[in-house]
Simulated scan of single mutants.
Amino acid sequence: MSDNQNPVTQHPRPDFPQQDQPHPGHTEEMRPEPDHGESSYRGSGRLEGCRTIVTGGDSGIGRAVALAFAREGADVLFTYLEEEEKDARETVRLVEDAGRRAVAVSCDIREEGECRALVDRAVQEFGRIDVLVNNAAFQMAQPESIEGITTEQFDRTMRTNLYGMFWLSKMALPHIPEGGSIINTTSVQAYKASPHLLDYATTKGAIVTFTQGLAQYLADRGIRVNAVAPGPVWTPLIPATMPDTEKFGKQAPLGRPAQPAEMAPAFVYLASQDASFITAEILNATGGTPLP
């Protein structure tokens, strides 16, 4: 019998309980609790022996990617913020339960020095970096759009989503061998910007451009650069940054938000040899929203 399920009903659908958390949010307080693939993801050795970095790996998409990478045979160094230490410990457990090395690093990627120290730590631990996943991000919904976005918020969004990606990509490059790859997390917001997420959407559009430009530059080195563009995904960032969680994801054609576990296979594919002829691409995982 096929394991395929109806994607409309496979995971929880809104309406969800209204819930609010202080930023950056915590997994165990969410209802329903997100699925990172703990019980469902089965590896097949596609990343055996890879050494990887995943930013924002304590929860959400980052945790799901760390778990999937580990079950595919990769060691994982991931970043988290100090406030996310409890979630980070759970990611460590999941990676180690898969029989792989987990290195959790408290790191604020808004700071160039911390990005440099992160890359140095990865090289110290692993000797090389086969895959860099630039996933960490900041958003904060503002119903008044540009009129409600402060300079402080704009600066935080830009530095987290763009500066960190730029610094880490540049600093990691000398340690990425032929056959390695960089995978960035962009968003449906890059193409269909919501006014209340104007600054966030702006960065996600820039990530698409950065991905495509860097991929062309690195092609002759045998290093691939791609991105995943999720639609709505049920992560701690949602109750921590959005005013209305009850109907979150209902606008997607599938009628629900994705679970983080549904994003991880896209990252595994792009990191693996299966995607050897794939570079400068944006893999859209939007739940049915058509994108360019």
Rank of each mutant, 00 (worst) to 15 (best):
G222H: 08
T211R: 02
P174E: 09
I207C: 00
Y191N: 05
P195N: 11
K192N: 07
G213Y: 13
L168V: 00
D220C: 06
T211E: 04
Q189I: 05
P174H: 09
P177C: 05
T157K: 13
A193H: 10
Q212D: 06
T185R: 03
P195K: 12
V208Q: 01
A206Y: 10
L197W: 01
T211V: 03
W167S: 05
T202A: 15
A215W: 01
K192F: 09
G213L: 04
I183D: 00
I223A: 03
G164E: 02
S181A: 15
S181Y: 04
Q189H: 14
L162T: 06
G179L: 04
P174F: 09
L173Q: 11
V188T: 11
P177Q: 09
P177R: 13
T160R: 12
T202Q: 12
I182A: 03
N184C: 07
Q212A: 04
A206C: 12
I182E: 00
T160I: 10
E178A: 15
T185P: 04
Y217M: 11
K192Y: 09
L198T: 09
P174R: 10
A219D: 13
N161M: 08
F210R: 01
T209S: 15
V208S: 03
A219T: 13
S194V: 07
A172I: 02
A219R: 15
W167F: 14
S181H: 08
I182G: 00
N161G: 02
V208D: 07
A206M: 14
P195W: 11
L173P: 00
A172Q: 00
F210H: 02
T202E: 12
A190Y: 11
D220L: 12
A206G: 14
A193C: 06
K204D: 03
